[in-house]
Design a protein around this nucleic acid. Structure first.
Length: 573
RNA sequence: GAUCCCGUAGCUCAAUUGGAUAGAGCAUCAGCCUUCUAAGCUGAGGGUUGCGCGUUCGAUUCGCGCCGGGAUCACCA
């Protein structure tokens, strides 16, 4: 549409305003009007020009329209409306032909090759292996995977990556938590009333009566006991004097990781790369970064620590990258990691982060720039999503892996299924705080919005099955006469379907899958309306064929759209 | 104190990046199955877009100032 109209309007404007216009170089913007009466596409060019030419926009519009000439088989009428919009109405014939394209391209309808040959990387989830994935991780996981799918649909070769760290205090505590549970299994007395490490009197008291205290800030989830049990099955009592960071930590890490991968798989997510932070030390990347920072004079030592200067960070104060203990802070490996990504030659790198990390990524970008990686840093796109608030019985559940106060993604999927989970996380813009009411999600599982889409798909499949059973198959040579489709419900369905590629492109450029959800919901709605108003399979062979093809078109769009969202498109419900 | 996100119908959220009459779902009410899936369709009610200025032909959208909610501001990640 735009492709057809743009040059015509340009020449018309040229004829009206001459060279003066060309010097201004005003782009012609099109938009799809909200209301059907305002046509299929509209431009506000007359309003744009009214400033420069100091003329009434409606007057300008009239002059432009007078210069326009169109193929009457494509454009039905042109109207000037409102403050100065030029509205274009296209012919039914034009839309009928559009349906053919959809049917021909089928599975790739909506795909673009704009980024063919380019490599993209999406880093998401990236939760350290200290416990099962919770509902809180769900939004990150599902959104990240969907962004990856969108990039694939726009032509990118996509790497899905999970970054993790299996060192540090967090993991030591995890190992020791397992160790204590193990000792409990082999009959050591562990005292579990909740008290903290620094509660000295309680601690001493426990030890004095021969009990080993289980600190409050240790991991309290049941899965810790499960890991201890599996160690007990393998090794019996022989680990009594084993170090927390030995077998206990290793076993915990590997079991938890397996668990995480399984959860992701259930959600339709498969990572290509699990990147261990430790690699950055092994390959010398971290050291290299430190040296270079020093060389470039942006880092200095003080109080036994290594600091990065605020000037390059653009922050209020200098920040530590290596602690006085010799351990790096998260900034350093993060910078090294992103440099590593840049070196792998991606054209686009996306980080999916929760809002709790919002303050950290500017440091990473600044660090990269300080290393002279400006070009690479420009290819990094950070997408921040707001938190999911879990509501149970109207109360906010504060999630904490350590306190075992969480609802796992698996539990959620057990309740409502992976499709509902994915849809629920995708249907809202990532900038808004998502309220996940568990009670509601369970109760409404029967009337969840995702079923509306799936039902439309299944319904179409059913119609097509019915037609195949009750009718002679149409000979391949016989072409379908799409001019049979002229009812309002039919045309508006085609209009809806044909915009799919535009929607995908828009959603993929702006990383806003929720708009695809909305669009598909609308497609389903328009289809249901069509179904309700008109019978597909009738004695009229010609009409039946045309309507069946229209159904197929709708099925393609719904199917492809659901595929991008990672949601199944059932043939039956 | 500073930075970022959010504030829209009773509830959960949209709004084509500045457009025309601000829309969906849930909930409430009233209709529609002898016919291809009623997990559907049709209709009704429900709004000072948190408040106030400003920018312009035009503001839910952009700017400034308040109010309210969330997140972050470590030698934690």
């Amino acid at each position: 549409m735009k492709e057809y109209l743009e040059p015509q309007i340009k020449t018309a404007c040229g004829r009206t305003f001459g060279a003066e216009l060309n010097s201004r170089n005003i782009p012609i913007a099109f938009e799809k009007p909200k209301v059907a009466e305002h046509g299929d596409i509209a431009t506000n060019i007359a309003m744009q020009l009214s400033k420069t030419f100091k003329k009434n926009p409606r007057q300008i519009a009239t002059e432009i329209v007078a210069q326009l000439q169109f193929d009457s088989s494509i454009v039905e009428k042109v109207e000037i409306a409102g403050p100065g919009f030029i509205n274009f109405h296209f012919t039914k014939n034009y839309f009928q032909n559009e349906l053919k394209t959809i049917l021909e391209i089928e599975k790739s309808f909506g795909k673009s090759f704009a980024n063919k040959g380019k490599k993209a990387q999406v880093e998401f989830v990236s939760a350290n292996p200290t416990g099962p994935l919770t509902v809180g991780h769900g939004r990150n996981a599902v959104f990240g995977d969907t962004v990856a799918r969108l990039l694939e649909w726009s032509g990118y070769d996509v790497t899905r990556e999970y970054y993790f760290n299996n060192a540090g205090r967090q993991m030591r505590v995890l190992g020791d938590s397992v160790r204590l549970r193990y000792l409990e299994l082999i009959d050591e007395k562990i005292r579990f009333p909740q008290f903290s490490n620094n509660d000295a009197s309680n601690f001493a008291n426990a030890l004095s009566v021969g009990e080993i205290p289980f600190p409050e800030d240790y991991y309290q989830g049941e899965y810790i006991t499960d890991i201890a049990k599996s160690l007990h099955t393998q090794f019996g009592d022989s680990l009594r004097n084993e170090n927390a960071e030995g077998k206990f930590k290793q076993q915990a890490e590997s079991e938890i990781f397996e668990d995480i991968k399984k959860t992701c798989k259930r959600l339709g997510i498969a990572f290509d790369v699990f990147f261990n932070e430790n690699t950055l030390y092994e390959t010398g990347m971290v050291k290299e970064v430190i040296e270079e920072f020093k060389q470039r004079g942006v880092a200095y030592e003080s109080e036994g620590a290594l600091w990065l200067k605020k000037e390059i960070l653009g922050s209020e104060k200098d920040k530590v990258i290596v602690k006085s203990t010799g351990e790096p802070t998260y900034r350093l490996p993060d910078i090294a990691y992103h440099r590593e990504k840049i070196r792998r030659g991606f054209d686009l790198m996306i980080d999916i982060l929760g809002s709790d990390h919002i303050a950290t990524y500017p440091d990473v970008i600044a660090g990269l720039n300080a290393l002279g990686e400006n070009e690479g840093a420009n290819k990094i796109k950070v997408l921040i999503h707001q938190f999911v608030t879990i509501l149970q019985d109207g109360e906010v559940v504060k999630m904490s892996t350590r306190k075992a106060n969480y609802i796992t993604l698996d539990e959620l999927m057990d309740e409502v299924g992976a499709d509902v989970v994915r849809y629920f996380f995708l249907m809202r813009s990532i900038g808004s705080h998502l309220n996940f009411d568990l009670k509601l999600a369970k109760e409404q599982s029967d009337e969840n919005p995702v079923y509306y889409l799936q039902y439309a798909h299944a319904r179409i499949a059913s119609i097509i099955r019915f037609a195949a059973e009750s009718q002679e198959p149409r000979p391949k040579s016989q072409t379908v006469d799409f001019s049979m489709l002229k009812e309002e419900a039919e045309i508006s369905l085609i209009k809806m379907l044909r915009t799919f590629p535009e929607i995908v492109e828009n959603v993929a450029t702006n990383f806003e899958p929720h708009l695809l959800c909305e669009y598909l919901h609308e497609v389903a709605g328009v289809f249901h309306k069509f179904y309700h108003d008109h019978r597909v399979v009738t004695d009229n062979k010609e009409l039946t064929s045309a309507r069946l093809d229209l159904c197929s078109g709708a099925k393609i769009v719904l199917g492809n759209g659901l595929a991008i969202l990672g949601i199944t498109a059932p043939e039956k419900m």
